[in-house]
């Protein structure tokens, strides 16, 4: 699997690239009718994507620690240069110990959340327990990939605690490729926040052998503080980030909720 960040940086491209592939295969000449229909649809998808990029909800961050996980997102929702609302929560509780923060096209994100909640409800009825965070991570990937050729325009970070109570963060692109990481940022503020986190958290390279754990060395309070700093910094330069941050902290004791004001301009 390619690195989460690489995929994210060109998240939009990577799927539109897929559309291009179809065109070549069609010219190759087999199954023409089916594929030209698909192509037509795919081209529409491309157009629609451009349109959708305007309706965005932005910027989310998650950090995993040894025994905690911090998930945060700002609460601004905008359309181009207009702010639609200053108080929109983009963090969704999927299970007791997994939370998803999403950026991208709001209507798709809501649809995705609905699908996941209903799948989780069925899981609870069948297994009489809450889904674990890594299981939810796989479900999210499958759900996104199910719509590979008309994707949900949603860029997610899933954070929570795994079955050993260790913090975990999963980061995704729109079509479902995902990776477990120590920290991740997605959305319009990701370009500003990611290098800052890289610098501050100095997590061991994923290329190291034997592999080292990617969880951050920070204490919970330090991580929460870092998240706040990230958001107030991103707000300075990113017009789509602002108003306030919503922070969710999971640890052995339970779930805590914090909000902090950001610049509103």
């Amino acid at each position: 699997m390619a690195s989460g960040h690489g995929w994210f940086g060109s998240g939009c491209f990577c799927s539109l690239g897929g559309v291009g592939c179809h065109r070549k295969r069609k010219d190759g000449g087999d199954g023409e009718d089916d594929i030209s229909f698909l192509l037509q649809k795919a081209e529409n998808v491309g157009k629609e994507w451009k349109k959708m990029e305007r309706k965005k909800i932005k910027t989310c961050v998650a950090i995993a620690g040894a025994d905690y996980c911090v998930i945060a997102a700002d609460t601004r929702m905008s359309t181009g240069y207009s702010i639609l609302t200053r108080d929109y929560s983009k963090i969704c509780k999927l299970a007791d110990k997994s939370f998803m923060a999403s950026s991208g096209f709001q209507a798709d994100v809501k649809a995705l959340q609905k699908v996941l909640s209903s799948r989780h409800l069925i899981y609870q009825h069948q297994h009489n327990k809450q889904m674990s965070c890594p299981a939810m991570a796989q479900l999210l990937s499958n759900t996104l990939y199910y719509k590979r050729f008309f994707p949900y325009y949603a860029f997610n970070v899933l954070g929570g605690l795994d079955s050993e109570g260790k913090g975990c963060v999963f980061t995704y692109d729109a079509v479902g490729s995902y990776e477990r990481v120590g920290y991740s940022a997605q959305g319009s503020g990701a370009t500003l926040i990611t290098p800052f986190l890289d610098n501050q958290l100095k997590s061991p390279s994923p290329l190291l052998l034997p592999a080292k754990d990617a969880v951050t060395p920070l204490s919970e309070a330090e991580a929460v503080d870092l998240v706040k700093t990230c958001f107030s910094s991103a707000t300075e330069r990113d017009i789509y980030t602002g108003d306030s941050v919503e922070i969710i902290i999971l640890n052995g004791k339970g779930v805590r909720h914090e909000t902090e004001q950001l610049r509103r301009d």
């Binding site: 349109k51 309706k55 639609l84 209507a107 809501k110």
Partner: peptide
Amino acid sequence: GSVSMIGVHFEDDHVATGFGNH
């Protein structure tokens, strides 16, 4: 609440469409 052409929706204390938003 408000809903747009492409399904974007939200609730707020006050809402406006089109030029009203500006």
